[in-house]
Write a protein that binds this DNA or RNA. Structure first.
Lengths: 103, 103
DNA sequence: TTGCTTGTACGAGATTCATCATACTACGAT
DNA sequence: ATCGTAGTATGATGAATCTCGTACAAGCAA
């Protein structure tokens, strides 16, 4: 077998407030973030009951990952999603908590 | 003379996280917010050296006001702009500070 | 191999939004 | 009254984005 599939994640330095706030401005994406914050850090995309189609789901997960808010890792046919809590708190202290509390 | 011109402001209950985050996601609008946070609370729109045209400025100030982030009050031919710090902290605790610190 | 599950790629459509220029209003000063 | 300043209204344009369906790829199970 070849190298495992992998997905690009920005480093904390590469995260921009612009991307973070734009990403969090969408209610569907905040639903994902809230569910990740409330549960374990290894939920597949399918575990989120989102009110959109499968391809739209893919889109939202990618926006969150590219902003640096979530991590994504292949695991079989699924993807394990996690909140990048520590890195976010490092880069933008208090921001994630404030948004989660307000949601 | 008739009644003074007035502008609509949402109450804290009417503020939505959606509008707040969308408003703060724009860099021009964050420039305005940052300048208000750093200075006095009575700066006219003209006092902001924004890299956009006059009509675009009007647009951004309105978005901020309708989201509940700034207050606007007519004063002669000008408008006095202020940050609604207390009300924002009441409705979305920590959010404004986190964004200002990250900016 | 065959089929099933999970997610992606690739358009396409509709909406939103940031931007501008022009014309306009409201107010104050001269 | 006239003029200048501050901001608004309106309409246009181009870019971004949220959405979908369909077709596809990758992995696992039987």
């Amino acid at each position: 077998m070849g190298p495992a599939r992998s997905l690009e994640h920005p480093t904390p330095e590469q995260m921009s407030l612009d991307s973070i706030l734009s990403a969090l401005a969408d209610p569907v994406r905040r639903t994902i973030v809230a569910q990740l914050a409330g549960g374990h850090d290894d939920q597949a995309c399918i575990a989120f009951a989102l009110p959109v189609s499968k391809s739209t789901s893919t889109h939202h997960f990618r926006v969150l990952r590219e902003a640096g808010i979530i991590s994504q890792q292949y695991r079989g046919t699924s993807i394990l999603n996690g909140l990048r809590t520590e890195e976010l708190n490092l880069r933008f202290p208090g921001l994630l908590d404030a948004v989660l509390a307000a949601n």
